[in-house]
Write a protein that binds this DNA or RNA. Structure first.
Lengths: 238, 238
DNA sequence: CCTATCGGGTACGCTTCCGTACTGAAAAAG
DNA sequence: CTTTTTCAGTACGGAAGCGTACCCGATAGG
């Protein structure tokens, strides 16, 4: 439950953009939550109970097949929300979504969200644009997975995650990076050494600090940036 | 322009599912079109002028980056429609969409489609589900691109295309298959030889004939099938 | 019919990345 | 403080696929 006067402190870009009239449909149903590392927000094949608007932290969306092979298809932070299928009219999760970096946010129950979407065209338009932005991200993940080298994909991932944090220190193990990208843990280790050698990052056990963001963008090349630019276009500059 | 009584012959699954009341919003604006091989339906960065409901043939949706690297993120046939961004409230194409296998269909102008979606909730729900199905396909393309071998990805692609045709003969060159998958042409040639050796396909210049579909499904393993099952679930059996 | 183009077969060296596995160090648990 | 667990460093052989390139036969165009 969030009073109207509490809106001022909200950092989530989507919640910020909800119009005054629409706020009554959403605000009163929001529940503040802290989100631990590895906390599951959606499980593949199970109903989606809540959509989460993140205020901090990063969530990963993983596609899964019937042999439990998985790979990340997108990341979500304070620019968006989880529960995209709800917006598309489906209450079942196709993906596993969980917190990659701990944080906090607000969540809204499925029914309240669906009701709000049904009631307000402007709200629906807003959330659909957000879902569309996520789709574009997924498409470019497919592109990067098919064409980029491990190093480029890793750079892209670090940049996308960095975009969603306020610090340069990313609390991540090589193991989990490897799981995200669908590659070997050892491969990630070697790639990170390459980054360190070039002064792009400094690494400590369980932590990566981005030192030279511009350099990292050079490594990622044009595998990074298109979805970000599209999001900018969809939502205008702010 | 399509009269109500002409609906009987329509094969497109989405058009078939449009309710009687909604048909007035769509049917009168449909224009029958034949679609040549390589015909472009949407161009990356340009406005989307029409959405296409395919009756036959297969369209490919390609993600493109700023260095013109590209890869297919989904295929569309008589089960769906092109112009997904229109449904999401965006009139600009992020992708290049063009006919991979010639066919025919109906198209509707952007404004007519957007108007229809704004007017009818049931129609909106239907088309959103279709867009969602496409999203799932894209996510699994990302999974296959990241984790599958060339041979498995090729098998997956052939199966998805075969699903959308009424014949076992696929008019495709190795060159174009390679472009779709983002791999070498020579790699496709070798993989197809493997299929021939196992009696899964027969090949002629510019044509592949699927002989043993079950065998091909075995090769693709669980990289094929999840989006198809989800589409089934979303739209029920028919 | 002749010619140009296109699609396919094949080869070679090379890069990338995998599978696996062992090690030591850091951190957490007791 | 000690033990256990987690995380990272490293190595080696091998598979997969790339870039490139050359050749030939099939088809299309003149």
């Amino acid at each position: 439950m969030l009073e109207a006067h509490a809106r001022a402190g909200i950092r989530n870009r989507l919640l910020q953009k909800i119009g005054f009239d629409d706020w009554d449909l959403i605000g009163p149903h929001l529940e503040a939550v802290t989100l631990r590392e590895r906390q599951t927000l959606e499980t593949h094949g199970r109903p989606i109970l809540h959509a989460y608007f993140l205020e901090s932290g990063v969530a990963s969306v993983m596609a899964v097949d019937t042999e439990d092979r998985r790979i990340e298809v997108g990341v979500i932070g304070l620019e968006g929300m989880t529960g995209v299928p709800l917006i598309m009219g489906d209450a079942r999760a196709q993906y596993c979504t969980y917190m990659q970096i701990a944080g906090s946010g607000y969540r809204i129950a499925r029914d309240a969200l669906c009701h709000a979407i049904a009631e307000s065209e402007s709200l629906r338009t807003l959330l659909l644009k957000s879902a569309h932005g996520f789709m574009i991200q997924t498409a470019h993940t497919a592109l990067a997975n098919g064409r980029a080298k491990l190093e480029q994909r890793l750079a892209r991932w670090l940049l996308m995650t960095h975009d969603r944090l306020t610090t340069n220190a990313l609390p991540l193990t090589h193991e989990f990076l490897a799981a995200m990208l669908g590659v070997r843990r050892a491969g990630v280790t070697v790639a990170i050494h390459g980054f360190e050698d070039r002064g792009l990052v400094t690494a400590r056990r369980g932590q990566l600090t981005l030192v030279d963001r511009a350099g990292m963008e050079q490594v990622a090349g044009s595998f990074y940036g298109v979805p970000e630019a599209e999001l900018q276009r969809l939502f205008g500059e702010a």
